[in-house]
Design a protein around this nucleic acid. Structure first.
Lengths: 85, 85
DNA sequence: CCTGTATTTCGATTGTTTTCTAATTATAGA
DNA sequence: TCTATAATTAGAAAACAATCGAAATACAGG
């Protein structure tokens, strides 16, 4: 599903992650703590979101900090608009 | 995947169907003719799009005429905007 | 009522996604 | 270098989705 932002957003958990990141960047651990899922599972969801460009991440010592890629969302919004109007 | 518009749009064929319908309503047969897929498969895709409200359909004698549900797309666009901004 | 056309539904198969546990990588600090 | 912490990757099980051919439904016209 790499590269398919629609597919990335089709999962409930991933949309919740996006909403979390909307307020501010979070570390992988902080994100993981919000869900009743194994850290590996959340890590997988983060990699899907990263794979299609909707989120980006940068390392800071041991932690990885994830944040939204606003421009990817704007591009997707544009694509959606073109789809129906 | 019923009710999940993101999931509905995650499939290439379904996005192509949406683009077809953007110009004007089409019968199931006309839609099916545009793809190298069995009619049953296209019918399935139409039912997914219908299930999440992105398209609607009405019967006209033997044929079913599919068209976009613009308001569902607008609602989705709004949801997308809320997701990141 | 029977036949033909349009389309869907059913059931099976194959491929993909979600989720987990266990093992691995990356980094910091003693 | 060794240990601890943060997070990912690997591999497997289970759930889900895409696709097809065959059978079923809906309707129109003779």
């Amino acid at each position: 599903m790499n590269n398919n932002a629609w597919g990335a957003l089709s999962d409930d958990t991933r949309r919740e992650i996006v909403m979390l990141l909307r307020s501010r960047p979070h570390t992988a651990g902080e994100i993981s703590d919000q869900f009743e899922l194994a850290p590996a599972t959340v890590s997988h969801h983060l990699s899907v979101l990263k794979g299609c460009g909707l989120v980006k991440c940068e390392r800071r010592a041991q932690t990885l900090i994830y944040s939204l890629n606003q421009s990817a969302f704007r591009a997707l919004a544009k694509e959606l608009t073109k789809l129906y109007s």
